[in-house]
């Protein structure tokens, strides 16, 4: 018993160390200067500095080669704006669509649903070239609106397919019962169907937020510096005078904080099965 327990703890520690090592390493790097990071062999002990964070937040970076202006905070704001609006729009469009696909049979229904899914398989570079030409014609190039629109390629299929499954799992009888009680179709949708699919909607929203947040190539090609999210903004740290590893590490730490916080917060909604005990068996 005791040995099994120890082995179990050991195995868990190994797994944790394996997965957490890169994150811990980056966290440590973010408190070191570039010189300390590049020292060989790596120093086990160092004097932590907040210099990287101060540079990111103030937007001024003093390096050996001179002064560098960085727009990291603006990039962070862009990321938040783009991801949040994209997920909000995708939820607005995707949840009713998922409901329709789950509850009704209609002509070409499965084909449309599958086409939406296939957007996820298509390599982004394939669509980006023609898209950037069209966007220039339409005046959508380098606009938040254009980016949010393109981000639907990431968010909408994900939300549609995850939420659809949750709608299908809930017994339609529950909605029928609500209609018979005297409530309209719309109220049955908003008061019964959507709350019951709540955990699924939260999961899909969270996942698509993370995918949108991590997107790189759409924003790289379709937007200029002042509209770009952190993923693209991090390129600015690759300077003529060298790569600013310390700032990159600090930028990574700052940019994973929102998704990490969201994931931790939403976790309990994801786990809770609301529909348990609703119907027999």
């Amino acid at each position: 018993m005791a040995i099994a327990k120890i082995l179990r703890a050991l195995a868990l520690s190994l797994v944790l160390a394996f997965f957490l090592f890169p994150i811990v390493w980056i966290l440590l790097m973010s408190f070191q200067t570039n010189e300390e990071i590049l020292r060989l062999p790596p120093s086990t002990f160092f004097r932590p500095t907040l210099g990287n964070y101060i540079a990111l937040i103030s937007g001024h970076l003093e390096t050996a080669a001179g002064e560098l202006d960085i727009t990291f905070l603006h990039n962070l704001w862009n990321s938040i704006l783009l991801s949040t609006s994209s997920v909000a729009l995708a939820l607005l469009l995707g949840v009713p669509a998922a409901y329709a696909f789950a509850r009704f049979r209609f002509r070409l229904g499965e084909d449309i649903a599958f086409t939406m899914l296939s957007f996820r398989f298509a390599p982004p570079l394939l669509v980006l070239l023609p898209l950037s030409l069209y966007f220039q014609d339409l005046g959508l190039n380098d606009t938040y609106l254009g980016l949010i629109w393109v981000y639907q390629l990431i968010c909408l299929p994900l939300i549609l397919w995850i939420v659809r499954g949750y709608f299908e799992d809930a017994s339609p009888d529950i909605e029928y019962a609500y209609r018979i009680d005297g409530h309209s179709w719309w109220r049955a949708f908003t008061r019964i169907a959507v709350p019951l699919a709540g955990p699924g909607i939260a999961a899909a929203g969270l996942l698509s937020f993370i995918f949108a947040w991590n997107n790189f190539v759409f924003a790289l090609i379709l937007a200029s510096a002042d509209k770009q999210p952190v993923t693209v903004g991090a390129l600015a740290f690759v300077t003529a005078s060298g790569i600013q590893y310390g700032q990159i590490a600090a930028a990574i730490v700052l940019s994973i904080l929102p998704t990490l916080a969201l994931a931790l917060y939403a976790q309990r909604w994801l786990v809770e099965g609301l529909s348990l005990g609703a119907v027999k068996g």
């Binding site: 017994s171 529950i174 018979i180 009680d181 179709w185 027999k280």
Partner: peptide, 20 residues
């Protein structure tokens, strides 16, 4: 008429209670 305006009461085999 839709189900909401027929003034019918119905009990379902699987109860169909609102779980939330």
């Amino acid at each position: 008429h839709g189900p909401e305006s027929r003034n019918v009461g119905m009990a379902f085999q699987n109860f169909a209670l609102y779980p939330h």
